[in-house]
């Protein structure tokens, strides 16, 4: 790159340079060896600028361009996948081994605490029979509906509290109280108000998740660097534009963390709700858990527990994990994990 620029600068501006016998360097010229660094000298027009350009080029972290392997780099992708997957697989295997050890120790008879082999086999048959699909569909539908309502409620509440200082002072601690209150404690009231219905479950799911989402929004807007807000204001972002272009994007990582926590609370509330509020014609995951216990079907119970866990992990990593990773990578906040 510098060569191109030097050639471009030199030829029109300094005609006398063409007299320099570049091609005749080896023709016995006493200055032959000096000519090698002539191009640098030719730029005497502006040595400072040339030097500065050199500094600038040296500054450019150009190698970063080549760092990423191309998309078609199959072995690289497989290896990356494996690097990410093996610790998780190993952890799962260890957990199963530990479980098996407890069973083998004879601490409880096998009809009360079956081993992983039996439970996984049961899981497989239930999966094939379609029971798990049906139950997961019912439960996930409730979860998504409740979470969607909680998101709208939480975001609206958070925005209002963020804008109106008095309200925040008044309602801030109430919100924390709501968040720390175990959602199971809401069920007696919810059942009184809505009977044993979907509405009772939804109400508690929303109450469980919305405070976390609102608090996430509030704290994340609090932590927006004042310098960015100043910069935005100087460039003419005021009022709504300031929120839209500066505060909301700057607060996004914290907000997503709040969303994630909200999801965890929603999921827990939902499980509690499905155990307490049994709706006969809707065989949800909670209902299946409860029935397994009533029938002393330990294998089934553990299999359904695994379903709860796997669903939770899947949503957490596929939805929130991916979202967080994308945001963090875009801003260079990637901790070197996994």
């Amino acid at each position: 790159m510098p060569q191109r620029e030097l050639a471009g600068d030199a030829s029109p501006a300094r005609p006398h340079l063409h007299a320099v016998p570049g091609g005749e360097r080896d023709a016995g010229s006493p200055e032959g060896h000096v000519l090698i660094d002539m191009p640098e000298r030719q730029d005497a027009e502006d040595p400072l600028r040339a030097g500065l350009r050199a500094v600038a080029e040296a500054e450019d972290p150009a190698p970063a361009v080549e760092r990423e392997p191309s998309a078609g780099d199959r072995p690289g992708r497989v290896r990356a996948l494996w690097t990410a997957a093996w610790p998780k697989l190993a952890a799962a295997a260890m957990a199963l081994a530990l479980w098996e050890l407890v069973v083998l120790s004879g601490w409880r008879p096998e009809y009360v605490l079956p081993g992983p082999g039996a439970v996984l086999a049961r899981l497989w048959t239930d999966l094939l029979a379609g029971d798990i699909g049906v139950a997961a569909a019912i439960t996930m539908k409730r979860a998504l509906l409740g979470y969607a309502i909680a998101m709208v409620a939480g975001v609206s509440l958070g925005l209002v509290l963020a804008r109106v200082k008095v309200l925040r002072t008044a309602a801030g601690s109430l919100l924390t109280g709501l968040q720390t209150m175990p959602s199971v404690a809401w069920f007696p009231l919810a059942i009184l108000l809505f009977q044993l219905s979907e509405a009772a479950i939804l109400a508690v799911v929303v109450l469980g998740a919305a405070p976390s989402i609102a608090i996430g929004l509030l704290t994340s807007t609090d932590q927006v660097p004042p310098l960015l807000v100043r910069a935005g204001k100087v460039m003419g972002a005021r009022g709504f534009a300031l929120y839209r272009h500066i505060i909301i994007p700057a607060a996004l990582p914290g907000f997503v963390a709040g969303l994630k926590q909200g999801w965890a609370f929603a999921w827990r509330s939902l499980m509690a709700g499905e155990l307490l509020v049994i709706i006969g014609h809707a065989p949800s995951i909670g209902v299946r858990l409860q029935f397994s216990r009533e029938l002393s079907d330990a294998e089934g119970l553990l299999a359904w527990m695994l379903v709860v866990m796997v669903l939770g992990v899947l949503v957490d990593s596929l939805v929130f994990g991916a979202l967080e990773r994308k945001i963090r990578e875009g801003r260079g906040l990637t901790a070197e994990h996994a």
């Binding site: 910069a231 003419g236 801003r331 260079g332």
Partner: peptide
């Protein structure tokens, strides 16, 4: 309104270089 540059770049980390430079133009 005068332009102001700080000791820290105060670039918006969620925008690319060109989007950052385009920001005041967008506001205008």
């Amino acid at each position: 309104r005068p332009a102001l540059m700080f000791q820290e770049s105060a670039l918006f980390p969620w925008l690319s270089v060109e989007e950052n430079v385009a920001f005041p133009l967008q506001m205008q």
